[in-house]
Each structure stands twice: as C-alpha cells, then as structure tokens.
Write a protein that binds this DNA or RNA. Structure first.
Lengths: 216, 216
DNA sequence: AGGTTAACGCAACCCGCGTTGCGTTACGCT
DNA sequence: AGCGTAACGCAACGCGGGTTGCGTTAACCT
C-alpha cells in the first residue's frame, strides 16, 4: 500500500532519503500548522521532495497521516506498573493527558483523530493504533485481577476506556479543560467501577468458575 | 454575528424565507453527503439562494454548522426520569447512542464535532450545545442524591460524562462498535462510580456539612 | 403611495489543490 | 563497468472553492 511493496523494489538510498524527508516534514507541518494546515504542497516544499512524488507514494494528506500513525503505533508505550490498579490507571490517564495537552503531542493527536473522520485509510490506521494500545494496557487489569482487586472476568479494554474516554470527551466534544484533576478523577471512577464489578466482560467468556459476582 | 442584528434590520419575509431555505438545505446536505460533502455551493444550489448570499450571512460552511448547532441546542431534550439513577443513566446513554447511530442523526453529530475541530465559531456553538445538555441532565444526579443513591456533593456533570464519554470514544477514537450493550455498560459503570463516591465535586463546594466521604 | 436602504442576485475573477504526460536520475543487478 | 528500470523531477493544466464590485429587488417607514 503505502510502504514500498515487496517485489522487485528499490528500498535503497534515494528512496529512503525521500521517505524520511517527507515524514519529518509531515510531523513538522502538523506541529506548526495543525491538521487543516497540513497540505501536500507545504510538505513537499519543506522536505525538498517534489509534489507529485508525495502524491504518488502517499496518495495525499490523509495518507501522510496514516503513515505517521503506523509509525507511532510501533513506538514503545510505557505501560504503568505501580503495584495498584488505582495507581496504574492514574498514570495511564496522565499519559493520555500528555497526548492531549503537551505542545509537542497535542497537534498530532488531534490531527490523527480528525484525519480518521474523513479518510478510510487514516481511520484504519487510527483504529489499529488504539487497538494496539488497549491490548498493551490490558496487563494493568490482569495484574489487578490476579491481586484480587477486581472480580475475575473484568474486561480490561472496558476499564481502560472508562479511564481515558472522559479526557477525549473533554478535548473533542465539550471543550472543557483537560488537566491533571480531570485525569485523576476519570482514573478513580474507572477504578471504582471495576471494583464494583460493573465492567465484567459479557457473553462468550464467563468468569472461569468461581464466585459469579462479588457482593457489592 | 450570524443572526440578523437588533438595529434597523429587516427580519421580514424575504430574509426569513432565505434563512429557512438555507437551513433546510444545510441539514439535507449533511444527512446525504456528510461533513466533507457540505459545501456552500451545494447548499446554495439546493436552496435556490445565491452563493454570495450564503457567504455573506453565514461566512462559510462552518458558519452553517454553527447555526445548525444553535438551533439544535434550543430544541427540547427529553431528560429521562425512571425513578432510579441506573435507569436514568441507561436511558441517557441510549439517547446518546441514537445520536451516534440513527441514520438521521449520526451525520449531524459527526459533522458538528468535526466542524468544531477547525472552526472557532463552530467550536463555541458545540461547547455551548453540550454545556446546555449537561446542565439539563444534571437533574438526574440531583434526584439520585435526594433519594440517597449517591453521596451528597456528587458532581452531576462528571456522572453524565462518565456515562456517555465511552460512546463518543468508540465512535471517534477507536472505531469500536457503538451499540446498546456498550451504552448499557457505560451507564452501569457511571452508576457504580457515583455510588462509590468517586465522582464528588472537588474544591470550592464541599458537601454541605455531613459525612465528609462515605466509607468505601 | 412613494422613498430609503438593507438584503439579495449576478458575473467575473483569483487562487491553490490535485492531476497528467513525459523527461531525467540513480538504484540494483549481472 | 554498463545496462534496465523503478523512482523521482518538472511543467502545465483542469477544476472547484472562495472573493469582489456593482446592479436589482423588496421590506420597512412616513
């Protein structure tokens, strides 16, 4: 698709140089001018690569964002491990908070979400990005279940979502402040809901035979 | 701004007719072609109003969306009243679910959120829209507090957000399915968190002198 | 009824994104 | 070293969104 195919291809010097220049220019343009400022012509001008080359290899601005998302998904993601579910969720929410407020990350996060809204390629990349993060973060809930902090069968993805969704909601929907207090409260709410057994996985995977539901 | 000012103005026949035609065409275009299909020229052609008139009165596509948002905010919003917090939150989440899945509402909801992302006017309108909804929904939590279902001082906005944010998160961030099961689980999680006292309002307004925090 | 003027219609224009066809470079292979 | 070809550079074009200046309509007031 976007990356050079596996046939008789030339991943050699010039191609790689062009690719890196365009990728760097894409991130720079996004950071400076945001999503609606990301145009192929600007990226081409900044990178020194010709406009048509960018259109051929990436297909347009959405393709540039999809490529950046694929790279971001491959980067390591420091899953918190504080010893308690409350602490882990708190740190997890703080990581998301940074993605939505840190001047270096915020434009990228917003651009990724917006690009996914009107580009199938970017949407696929965005969903894959978050799917990977969720499965990496699942270990937080699994450790908590092993410690007995939450009932067996608690859905890790649902706990993570409950902890971070309010931050995205503030940033993209209501426009309310996104700060440490909001992050901590969202994490605490997710922790409380998980402890109360409100986030057990439904249907096909019942808790592996034990107490069906801990008394609240 | 967008609406005709209060000075020596002519809200009379022709102006009102043009306004209604453009508004109807805007909603129709949004429903059919979505957000990125909403162009001033299409709205002008469909409404029979000239292109320049639309630009003058609304300023562009974002202004059309901001106007539609202002109208949507004024429409009545059936706040659930089932007698229990769990039931109210469940129905509230189902209302949001409808806004994100019903073919008649979904394009509008998405367009509103996207327009706010790259237009200050649309952002103001969107934030006002949700601020109004939150304050209307607050009565759900207030009734629950009066019934003793949740601790005094529970933040209504935070409870509502916890119940609905996961749905927006699925729709706009992760691309996971948005269905009744997701709505019910989000509502149940918000209910559990509120009951556990994890959503008491911070700072300036302490609970009006009672138990400072219910033992968990 | 008639005048005033806000609001609208109209035609032409500018600009920038995206596309196309062809010539040029330099990577990879023998 | 020398060839074949994938990948890139280049110039020109089409097209649609957005803007401008001026003429026309019809709402409001006396």
């Amino acid at each position: 698709m976007t990356a050079p195919g596996p046939g008789t291809v030339r991943p050699g010097g010039r191609t790689a140089r062009v690719r890196d220049a365009v990728r760097a220019a894409t991130l720079a343009e996004l950071s400076e001018h945001g999503h609606h400022g990301l145009t192929v012509e600007n990226v081409a001008a900044r990178s020194g690569v010709h406009k048509t080359t960018v259109y051929r290899r990436w297909g347009g601005a959405d393709g540039l964002i999809a490529d950046a998302l694929d790279r971001a998904a491959a980067e390591p993601w420091p899953v918190p491990d504080t010893g308690t579910l409350a602490g882990d969720l708190r740190d997890l929410a703080r990581l998301v908070l940074a993605g939505l407020t840190d001047p270096a990350q915020e434009p990228l996060t917003r651009a990724f979400v917006l690009a996914a809204a009107h580009s199938a390629a970017a949407a696929r990349a965005l969903h894959a990005f978050y799917a990977r993060r969720h499965e990496q973060s699942a270990v937080i809930v699994e450790r908590a279940a092993a410690r007995g902090e939450v009932p067996a069968g608690t859905d890790p993805a649902e706990v993570v979502r409950t902890a971070v969704a309010p931050l995205y909601h503030r940033a993209f929907i209501t426009g309310e402040p996104v700060d440490a207090a909001a992050a901590d409260r969202a994490a605490a709410a997710a922790c409380a809901a998980a402890r109360a057994g409100a986030l057990v996985a439904p249907g096909p995977e019942p808790p592996p035979r034990g107490r069906p539901r801990p008394a609240h």
